[in-house]
Amino acid sequence: MKAEKKEIQDILVTQDLSIGYKQGKKESLCLLSDVNLTIRRGEMVCLLGPNGAGKSTLMRTIAGIQPPLAGCTLVEGIPIKDRNYKEIAQLLSIVLTERINVGNLTVYHIVSLGRHPYTSWMGKLSNEDNEKIKWALEQVGLLHYANNFINELSDGERQRVMIAKALAQDTPLIMLDEPTAHLDLPNRVEIMRLLHRLARETNKAILLSTHELDLALQAADLIWLMSRNEPVKVGAPEDLVLNGSIEGTFHNKSFNFDRKTGNFIMNYQKKQSIQLLGNDVMGFWTQRALSREGYQVSCEQVGDCCVNLLEDTMEWEVKQNGSTIKCVSIQELLFYLRNSLSKEK
């Protein structure tokens, strides 16, 4: 009996990869060396890092657009370096940042371009090609827009069209360069949720570069964290938060990374201390507003000003210099504190 072919789990592997640029015939500028990374089937990996860390160079090198200085990239065990464009197009598909402005093409026509690596020189679509296109459109929820022109769609819908094109290309690896650029918050969230679902349901490997740290921490299975002149750090988002890698990579005197919330918090110049009594959701947002206003917030008694949260009535009781007043909103609370502080001066 003939043994069944075992499905390859490691979709993308880089072996001792060095990335950078040739400078003349003999010299080269190496941004990163000895890069050994892996993406497995069904995983969504987010590439993060500050500007200038080499994210775009790494993506281009993996995709075969830019030659490596050393080492190689393998997709399903096949080296990219010496393959022609048609062969590479059957191994990986790419969704770029640029906005699509081809108003005379329908959604179906654009997605059908993903089948180009499999068609003859005449570009005629087979029944299998058409089935792949319809399936891809169904996956992104746009089958009912198949005959619409692309310029009739919103930015979020256009990005889903490009993801459908990559799905129709039917490659084991899908690469996306900042797929949430140009999108508003709801669409950024939807795109990240869509990509995470597609990795699971299609069993493809998805690699995307992004500046959306907060969304990457929630959606990614793995993060590749790049910083200048340092090896790429790899791990689950939570591991990179807990071991301080995220905080260290994005360290800046203007803000701090809060490990508890996964958010960046701006550093404001503190003008005085204030006591805040209360917690839960109301306390969190009150503390954030007071910090933005320049107060050092503490639950201990400090100075002569105390804000007590009356959660039952959603009011803020302010005790200062022997007097007590109540505010019915954070806006009113901040207005009162600003005026009382200016009077003291």
Rank of each mutant, 00 (worst) to 15 (best):
L105R: 13
L105M: 15
T106N: 05
Y108R: 13
Y108E: 10
H109Y: 07
H109T: 13
V111H: 06
V111L: 07
P117T: 01
T119W: 00
W121A: 02
M122S: 11
M122W: 12
G123H: 07
K124E: 14
L125R: 09
N127R: 12
E128A: 11
D129C: 01
E131S: 12
I133Q: 00
I133S: 01
K134H: 04
W135A: 11
W135E: 14
A136R: 00
A136Y: 00
A136M: 04
L137R: 05
E138V: 06
Q139C: 14
Q139S: 10
G141N: 05
L142K: 10
L142R: 09
L142T: 01
H144N: 03
Y145D: 10
Y145K: 15
Y145W: 05
A146E: 12
A146S: 13
N147C: 00
N147H: 09
F149L: 09
I150V: 15
I150M: 04
N151R: 11
N151W: 13
L153R: 13
S154C: 11
D155Y: 03
G156Q: 06
G156P: 03
E157P: 11
E157G: 05
R158S: 01
R158Y: 07
Q159R: 11
Q159C: 10
V161W: 09
V161L: 05
I163S: 04
K165V: 04
L167C: 13
L167Y: 05
Q169T: 03
D170K: 15
D170P: 07
L176P: 10
D177S: 09
D177I: 08
D177A: 05
D177G: 07
D177Y: 03
E178F: 04
E178I: 06
E178M: 03
P179S: 03
T180K: 00
A181C: 02
H182V: 03
L183M: 11
L183I: 08
L185S: 07
N187D: 07
N187Q: 05
N187H: 05
R188W: 08
R188P: 02
R188G: 04
V189P: 08
I191N: 02
M192R: 00
M192W: 10
R193D: 12
L194Q: 01
R197Q: 15
R197N: 14
L198A: 13
A199Q: 04
E201S: 13
E201T: 15
N203F: 05
N203I: 02
A205W: 00
I206Y: 08
I206D: 09
I206F: 13
I206V: 15
L207R: 01
L208Y: 14
S209E: 09
H211K: 03
E212G: 14
E212C: 15
E212R: 15
D214M: 15
D214H: 14
